[in-house]
Design a protein around this nucleic acid. Structure first.
Length: 800
DNA sequence: CTTGACCGGGG
DNA sequence: GTGTACGGTCAAG
C-alpha cells in the first residue's frame, strides 16, 4: 500500500551491523507514520594522486581498524565521475557498514600516499539519506513498502520506494509552553495552543486555566501527559533549549521521573551542536523560537534586545508586561496576588504561541527549500543554512562538495583580516528637507549574478571571456554560469514569480500566507550567499568572490551618486545600497532619474524608490563631521524612523531614551526651541526630585554570583549592597539600579531600584540627559551650558 | 592597536 | 554521532 506523508523528523539507529534510517511522518488524516529504510549505506569519496586503479587496489589491500583494533570493513568501492567546481574529476565512492566508521576509515585512507583527497566524510547520515533520496522535509512524499506496527505510531512502513508527489496541506498540532522556577523548583508550567490554555501549579489560584497539582513531581508527570494526550507535533517556546528543558531534565532527575516526551515514549535527549544543545523529542518537532530569531531573524528586528517581550512587541505589536521578577517572587513568597502571577505565566506561553504562528511557518518553508529537518532549521546559523542548501544542490549537479575547513584553516582565513565592505557617504549634519531614499534591490545577490561571481568561475584557465577588475589580480570567467549565480538567479526569479502570484490572493488568507512565507524564505536564502562566501567556516569559502562583490557594490553606488549629482540632485547620504537625494520638483524628476539609471544597469539589477521623506536629521561626530549610520527620518504621514541612536539601547535609563526620542521628534518638526525647553524641563524635574525610580533604572544582567566579580561596576556594587541587606541574589539575574546621592564614585552609590531612596540628579543630568540630548542638539550649536540654563536647584533629589 | 573575557535568552 | 559550529563589545595589556 502507498502512503502519502510529510516527513517532520529524521534519525537513524544501528541494528547489529546495519544502519536503519527512521523517518517520522504525518499523513493528511493526522496519522503518525514511522518509515524505516535498511537499504541505505554510508560512504565517502576518495580521489587519487595518480590513477583510480592504484588507489582502489591500495584501499582493498589495506586493513582498517579502530582504536580498539576492531576491523573497519570497506564493503564496496565504486568508480564515479564527478565535478569539483567546474572541473571534471574521477573519484572512488568508498562504502562501509555503519556511519561512525566513515570518519575513522577516511582518516586512514587520507594518510595513504596513493590518496590525494577525501570528501564528504562528515555529513550526518540522516542528512545524507535525505539528500541522496531527494526527500525534503515538510514536503509531501509517497512511500511504499511492507507495513507493520510500531509503538507510538499508527503504522510502520519498511520503505521500498519513494516518490515526490503534489503537496498536501496538513495541520500540525502545536503547543507552546513556559516554566516558572522559584529557588530551583518548577512552580508553574503554562501551555498555550489554539483555543487552549492551561496552567499547572502547586497553588490554588482563582483562574480558569489553572490546574492545581499536589507537588512538583505531579506537575512533571502532568507535563509529560499533556504532551502525549494532545499528540503534539510541534512543541515550542522561548529559549526552551537553554532554559526550560534544562530545568525539566534536572527536576526529572531529582524526582527519578523519565522525561519521556518522544512519540514512542523515548526520553528527551540533548543533542550537542557546538555551543548549543538542542532538546530532541523523537518523532516530534521541538522548535525553540529563540535560536531561530537570534540566528536568522535578528538582522531584520529593530529591537536592541531579543527578549520575548521585546520581540513580541515588535512582531505582534503587543504591549510589554511590566511585572518584574522581584514582584513575582514576592507574590509567590507571600502567596499574594497569585492571580496576577498566573496571568503573567500564561501570557508568556501565549506570546510564544502567537509568535510561533508567525515564525514556524517560515521555518517550515526553509525546511522545504533546504531539505533540513525542522529541528535543524530552527537552530542553524545563516551560514549553515546556506551550506546545507548548497550540499543538496551540489549533489543534484554531480558535484563533490569541498571539505569543511580545519580549525587552522579557519584561523588562517580569519587572519587575512577584513576586506572592504559597503560605501558610506558622509552626510552634512543637520536637517534636510524633502528627501527621496533610493536603494538597489538585493544589491549583492544581483551583483553576483550580473558579473558571474562564484568560487567556480574564479581564475579559470582557457577562458575566452573574463571579467576583470582594475583593483584585483583575479578574474571571473563568463563562458558558463557559475554555481552561485545560478542558484541566486533561480531563487530570485522564483521569488518574483511568487510575489506576482501574491496579488491573486486575499491578504491574510491561508494561500496568501503560505506564498508569502515561501517568498520570505527565498529572499532570506538568496541574501545569504554573499555573506556565506566570506564566512571563514564555509566549505565554499571564497574571499575573492566576497571581496569582488562588495567592490562592485561600491562601484555601482558611487556611479549612481555621481550620476545623481550630474543631474542636479543633491546627495544627502548613502550607505552600501542606498542613496538619499533631494531637489526642487523632487517627485517629478526622481522618476526620470530612476528610469535612466535602470536602463544602464545590467539586466538583473534595479534601483528602486524606497520612499519620500518630509525631513531628515543627521547628527555629527565628536570631530565635527556628519556621523554615519545615525539619523532620523520623518515620513509624510508623520511617523518617525530612527536609526542608530542610543534611544534603543537598554543600558540607558528610560528617562534618557525618552528624552532623546522627544528631542528628535521636535527637531524633525522644526521645533528646536521646544526641544531645548523640553530638555530644560526634564533637567528641572530631576533637580526637583520629581522623577520616579522606574524612569531612572538602568538594566544589566548578572552573569555570575556577585561575589565572583572582580570589577566594581555599578550593578555589581548595587547587588553586593543588596546582599548585605539579606537579599538572595543569584547569578543570571537581570537587575536594575539607580545611582543615589552621597559621596564617592558612581559605583559606590548605585543601589538596586527597590532600595533607592533618592537619586543623584547631577549624575542623571550629566551622564544621561545631557549626552543623549546633545547628540542631537549640538548640531544646532547648542552647548551643555545652554541646556543647563539657570534652573534653580530647589529640591534635593529625594523621592516624594 | 591587539588580546582575552564576557555575554546573549530564560526565572 | 559521517560530533564538538557565534559574533560583538569592552576593559585590560
Amino acid at each position: 500500500m502507498k502512503t502519502k506523508i510529510q516527513v517532520i523528523d529524521a534519525d537513524y539507529t544501528i541494528n547489529g551491523d546495519t544502519p536503519e534510517i527512521q523517518l517520522y511522518g504525518k499523513t493528511q488524516k493526522g496519522e503518525n507514520i514511522l518509515a524505516v529504510d535498511t537499504n541505505f549505506r554510508p560512504y565517502f569519496y576518495a580521489t587519487p594522486v595518480n590513477d583510480l586503479e592504484e588507489l582502489r587496489e591500495a584501499i582493498e589491500k589495506e586493513e582498517f581498524t579502530d582504536d580498539n583494533g576492531e576491523k573497519l570493513e570497506v564493503t564496496k568501492i565504486e568508480e564515479v565521475e564527478k565535478f569539483d567546481g567546474h572541473e571534471e574529476v574521477e573519484a572512488l565512492k568508498v562504502y562501509t557498514t555503519v556511519p561512525p566508521n566513515v570518519p575513522k576509515i577516511e582518516k586512514q585512507v587520507y594518510d595513504m600516499h596513493e590518496t590525494s583527497e577525501c570528501r564528504e566524510y562528515d555529513i550526518p547520515f540522516y542528512k545524507r539519506y535525505l539528500i541522496d533520496k531527494n526527500i525534503r522535509p515538510v514536503k509531501t512524499i509517497e512511500i511504499e513498502g511492507e507495513e507493520a506496527t510500531a509503538e507510538g505510531f499508527n503504522k510502520k512502513v519498511e520503505i521500498e520506494s519513494i516518490e515526490t508527489v503534489e503537496e498536501t496541506e496538513l495541520e500540525f498540532e502545536e503547543l507552546a509552553f513556559d516554566l516558572e522556577v522559584y529557588e530551583g523548583e518548577i512552580i508553574m508550567a503554562s501551555f498555550a495552543s489554539k483555543n487552549y490554555t492551561k496552567l499547572l501549579t502547586t497553588e490554588e489560584i482563582d483562574r480558569e486555566a489553572v490546574e492545581t497539582v499536589e507537588n512538583e513531581r505531579n506537575l512533571l508527570k502532568r507535563f509529560i501527559e499533556i504532551v502525549d494526550e494532545r499528540d503534539v507535533d510541534v512543541l515550542t517556546g522561548y529559549n526552551t533549549d537553554e532554559y526550560d528543558f534544562q530545568r525539566l531534565r534536572e527536576r526529572c532527575e531529582e524526582h527519578n521521573i523519565e522525561l519521556s516526551l518522544g512519540r514512542d515514549g523515548e526520553r528527551m535527549k540533548f543533542k550537542r551542536r557546538g555551543r548549543f544543545s538542542g532538546a530532541r523529542l523523537k518523532g516530534r518537532m521541538h522548535l525553540d523560537l529563540y535560536p531561530f530569531i537570534e540566528h536568522i531573524l535578528a538582522p531584520g528586528i529593530d529591537s536592541e534586545t531579543l527578549d520575548l517581550d521585546s520581540v513580541a512587541q515588535e512582531m505582534l505589536g503587543r504591549e510589554k508586561d511590566d511585572l518584574s521578577w522581584e514582584e513575582m517572587k514576592q507574590s509567590w513568597e507571600e502567596k499574594e496576588d497569585l492571580e496576577e502571577f498566573a496571568d503573567y505565566a500564561l501570557k508568556d506561553a501565549e506570546l510564544a504561541y502567537e509568535l510561533a504562528q508567525e515564525i514556524i511557518p517560515q521555518m517550515l518553508e526553509l525546511s522545504r527549500i533546504t531539505g533540513l529537518i525542522p529541528f535543524d532549521t530552527c537552530r542553524l546559523t545563516y551560514g549553515q543554512l546556506t551550506e546545507n542548501y548548497l550540499l543538496r544542490e551540489a549533489f543534484e549537479r554531480d558535484m563533490i562538495s569541498p571539505n569543511r575547513p580545519t580549525r587552522s584553516e579557519r584561523r588562517k582565513r580569519q587572519n587575512q583580516g577584513a576586506y572592504s565592505g559597503g560605501f558610506v557617504y558622509e552626510p552634512d549634519s543637520g536637517l534636510h528637507e524633502n528627501i527621496a531614499v533610493l536603494d538597489f534591490r538585493s544589491l549583492y545577490p544581483t551583483v553576483m549574478v550580473s558579473h558571474n561571481i562564484s568560487p567556480d568561475t574564479l581564475n579559470i584557465e582557457d577562458c575566452s571571456d573574463e571579467f576583470e577588475m582594475d583593483k584585483f589580480n583575479y578574474t571571473f570567467c563568463q563562458d558558463f554560469q557559475g554555481f552561485f549565480p545560478e542558484l541566486v538567479e533561480n531563487l530570485v526569479e522564483e521569488r518574483y514569480k511568487l510575489k506576482s502570484n501574491l496579488d491573486d490572493y486575499e491578504d491574510g488568507s491561508k494561500k496568501y500566507n503560505s506564498i508569502n512565507n515561501r517568498q520570505k524564505a527565498l529572499k532570506l536564502l538568496a541574501n545569504s550567499y554573499y555573506g556565506y562566501l566570506g564566512y571563514n567556516g564555509a566549505r565554499w569559502y571564497s574571499r575573492e568572490s566576497a571581496e569582488a562583490t562588495t567592490y562592485m557594490g561600491r562601484e555601482y553606488i558611487q556611479e549612481t551618486i555621481q550620476k545623481a549629482e550630474e543631474k542636479g540632485f543633491e546627495v544627502v547620504y548613502g550607505d552600501t545600497d542606498s542613496l538619499f537625494i533631494q531637489k526642487e520638483n523632487l517627485k517629478e524628476e526622481m522618476d526620470d532619474f530612476l528610469l535612466e539609471v535602470n536602463e544602464n544597469l545590467p539586466r538583473f539589477m534595479e534601483l528602486e524608490l524606497e520612499g519620500v521623506f518630509t525631513r531628515g536629521f543627521f547628527t555629527s561626530t565628536d570631530s565635527g563631521g556628519g556621523a554615519k549610520k545615525k539619523y532620523a527620518l520623518l515620513s509624510e504621514d508623520g511617523s518617525m524612523k530612527i536609526t542608530g541612536f542610543e534611544q534603543v539601547r537598554r543600558d540607558w535609563s528610560p528617562i534618557a531614551k525618552d528624552t532623546q526620542k522627544q528631542v528628535l521628534e521636535h527637531v524633525l518638526n522644526e521645533r528646536t526651541d521646544e526641544a531645548i525647553e523640553l530638555v530644560k524641563t526634564v533637567i528641572q524635574r530631576l533637580k526637583d526630585g520629581e522623577v520616579p525610580p522606574e524612569e531612572l533604572r538602568i538594566y544589566t544582567t548578572l552573569t555570575k554570583p556577585p561575589e565572583e566579580y572582580d570589577s566594581t561596576a555599578p550593578h555589581v556594587e548595587a547587588v553586593k549592597k543588596a546582599k548585605d541587606r539579606g537579599d538572595d541574589i543569584e547569578a543570571e539575574t537581570t537587575i536594575s539600579y539607580v545611582v543615589t546621592r552621597g559621596t564617592g564614585n558612581i559605583s559606590s552609590r548605585a543601589e538596586l531600584t527597590k532600595y533607592a531612596e533618592d537619586y543623584d540628579a547631577e549624575y542623571y543630568i550629566e551622564n544621561q540627559i545631557i549626552p543623549v540630548s546633545l547628540r542631537v542638539l549640538k548640531v544646532f550649536g547648542y552647548t551643555e551650558g545652554q541646556l543647563l540654563g539657570k534652573g534653580r536647584q530647589s529640591g534635593l533629589g529625594r523621592f516624594n
